[in-house]
């Protein structure tokens, strides 16, 4: 599984990446977490408010820090 964190590196993006890591650990699954910090790539994914999280290339939650629980649901 591929989890993508979109965001230019602001505090919220770091928090979201942390939540994603926790969710992966708690769910006990194998997942690769990739950070996309380039504005151009973020825009190309159709994201207009950061941070955002995508699972296997599909953007799931935008504009807020998704909680550990939410991410666990997304990757389950």
């Amino acid at each position: 599984m591929k989890i993508t964190i979109y965001g230019p590196g602001c505090k919220n993006c770091v928090n979201l990446a942390d939540n994603a890591r926790k969710a992966v650990a708690e769910a006990g699954i194998e997942a690769e977490i990739i950070k996309v910090e380039d504005m151009k790539e973020i825009a190309m994914a159709g994201i207009m408010s950061t941070p955002a999280i995508g699972i296997n290339g599909k953007v799931k939650i935008k504009g807020r820090v998704a909680s550990v629980e939410e991410i666990k649901e997304l990757i389950a």
Partner: peptide
């Protein structure tokens, strides 16, 4: 927030 101004502009 100013950190989203670029993706908004492009969008």
């Amino acid at each position: 927030c100013s950190c989203s101004s670029v993706p908004i502009f492009i969008g």
